[in-house]
Design a protein around this nucleic acid. Structure first.
Lengths: 342, 342
DNA sequence: GATTAGCACTCTCTTCTATAGAGTGCTAAT
DNA sequence: ATTAGCACTCTATAGAAGAGAGTGCTAATC
């Protein structure tokens, strides 16, 4: 719909603004980019783009700045992903090379590396626990009073809790109970554990022992309350490098949000597409984030979400680079985790 | 050494400065506090305190500001801890009341509550893993290829890893191996596991199986690299509320440090005293933190550090309140954890 | 008809100056 | 020993002036 010339101008303008963070004028544009047309012509085209809603002016006699619509257009049909340097790619892949690491460490490192390479904030949400399949329960007595409760999923994720041994239950009985529990419930997704199946189980146990029933009620509510997924956050201070956040109050509002686990989960929970997804400024459902953009991708195996990865920065974000970084990191992470978390 | 009147003036001045963050003049002091003496007298006393190094002037015709020496004196012999309101105390203790929680969650909540009540940054470092005593190793095969490796301490802390099953080892053999390992090494502190004891063990295993030896080498290096303790950080954005951090660059430097796990550990690792310890401004060994103070306390059982708790804020910190908060929180946390982490 | 040079006009940002305000140190009176 | 009074210092703030960048419009040019 836009003429080729308008596209060229829009692209140059947005690129320039992304780099320098200052309104771009016709003269500057003509000087910095060899467009082969005079400032006056550019001026006319810019006025058109302004009318059409792709650009806007901070004030009458300033240059133009991309509007939300401008960014959207840029991202969808102007920009071409900018390949990372091999140094940067190495940095990202090396962050995962430590073999045998805890999955926790993998995500932590990945997040750190991604924020360093992108120069923005990186977010990684680990596997959604509720979607994992229960494989076995183990009850390992620690001493006469406490027992370590281990819940293991088919992907090898382990949740542990320390609980008191219910009155009058011996070590061998604990073992028996764990086996029974495992036999009855193996194969059930964790999120269904607290459901109706369990009611059945309660009845079986309650016949045997009152204390035991309580024990299981505690146990289940305990694991259920694990609730929120873990989100790894990296490079929050990168935000402060950008002039749009030189106002401390503005920064504070945003950083405060990022401190909330729930908020972060909410931010990433919606992402489902395997491909890169870009949420720009006003598209954000959280008001506080309407001057930010997020580039996300998620990865799932067999319908189970393994992780969601994202980069968060100001709307004036270097989308071309960030998209490449997220794409690359997703590939690396998938390769690393595919084996382990089938 | 200081006359009673100088002490009174110093105390009033520092309290005022802590509250308002602005240099305090003699006139203001006389107006705001009923000291029963005129501004001129105060002026003379302030000049003395200045000469003695307790106060300093930002510039010739401004009021006085406490120097490091002034803060130190204030903290050591002027201030009296300010009791928290019962609301605040409730907020702190309620954060721990969720029984049966994961220890991770306990610390997370504690840190969050402490930062909210203190209005500064809270730091909590969990149990030093290396000081824990190895109790047992479990090898739980997940499928034909992977095994969940569980290392359990006598306090019920669990470390888990997913590893490949060494070639040619059956499930029942894994179980045997875990038992042997447990029998030989139970009672040894984790930090000694990678030491000479292990060399002995290697020999035992290497006779049996080469693949197995490698497996154990991996396993040990794996757990050893768990390394850094976990530090829970809360309320970083509180820093931005204070005028001394209205400069974005300054904030960035500090927040960047706080993003480094190693830095945080280093910050808390030195703390050993069970009582409140206060590190003021220049006393900090990290240059970037010389405009900050930290109030810390740590808690150990039987020589093993269970946690270290701290509040970090600007040098102009409300010490009286923070000391109370840290003291109270320490009591609460100890009560919560004493039973569990003996 | 599209493009461009020229020009008057607008708005911001920076620099400079003047002034108000708070505080000090000193001296002389109490 | 304490205090009132006063000249002096320094900062922070507001206003004014000017530079700089950009715009939109008109008329000339390709």
């Amino acid at each position: 719909m836009l003429s080729e010339r308008k596209r060229t101008i829009l692209k140059a303008l947005i690129s320039d603004y992304i780099q320098r963070a200052e309104p771009v004028g016709s003269r500057t544009l003509a000087r910095r980019y060899n467009l082969g047309i005079s400032p006056a012509t550019i001026r006319n085209e810019m006025a058109d783009l302004d009318d059409m809603g792709y650009l806007k002016q901070p004030h009458t006699s300033a240059g133009r700045v991309p509007s939300y619509k401008g960014y959207r257009y840029f991202v969808d049909s102007l920009m071409q992903a900018e390949k990372l340097t091999s140094e940067e790619e190495q940095r990202l892949s090396r962050s995962l090379q430590q073999r045998l690491a805890k999955i926790d460490t993998v995500f932590y490192r990945a997040s750190k590396a991604l924020s360093e390479v992108s120069h923005y904030i990186s977010l990684i949400m680990g596997p959604v626990l509720g979607q994992q399949i229960f494989q076995q329960l183990r009850l390992i007595p620690l001493d006469s009073k406490y027992v370590v409760v281990l819940l293991i999923t088919d992907t090898g994720l382990v949740q542990d809790r320390l609980m008191e041994i219910p009155r009058g239950i011996s070590a061998s009985e604990l073992d028996q109970i764990a086996r029974l529990f495992t036999r009855l419930l193996a194969g059930v997704p964790l999120e269904d554990l607290s459901g109706s199946l369990l009611q059945e189980l309660y009845k079986v146990f309650s016949r045997r022992n009152r204390a035991l029933q309580e024990f299981f009620e505690d146990l289940i509510s305990n694991f259920a309350s694990a609730g929120g997924e873990k989100v790894y956050l990296g490079g929050t201070t990168n935000l402060l490098k950008h002039p749009e956040f030189s106002d401390v109050e503005k920064v504070r509002g945003l950083l405060q949000l990022l401190e909330e686990r729930e908020f972060l989960c909410g931010l990433l929970a919606d992402v489902t597409s395997k491909d890169i997804e870009i949420i720009i400024g006003e598209e954000n459902k959280y008001v506080e984030m309407q001057e930010c953009s997020i580039v996300t991708a998620s990865y799932e195996i067999g319908g189970r979400k393994v992780y969601t990865i994202g980069v968060l920065g100001p709307t004036r974000m270097d989308y071309a680079r960030v998209v490449s970084a997220v794409e690359f990191m997703q590939k690396q992470l998938s390769d690393t985790l595919r084996e382990i978390l089938r």
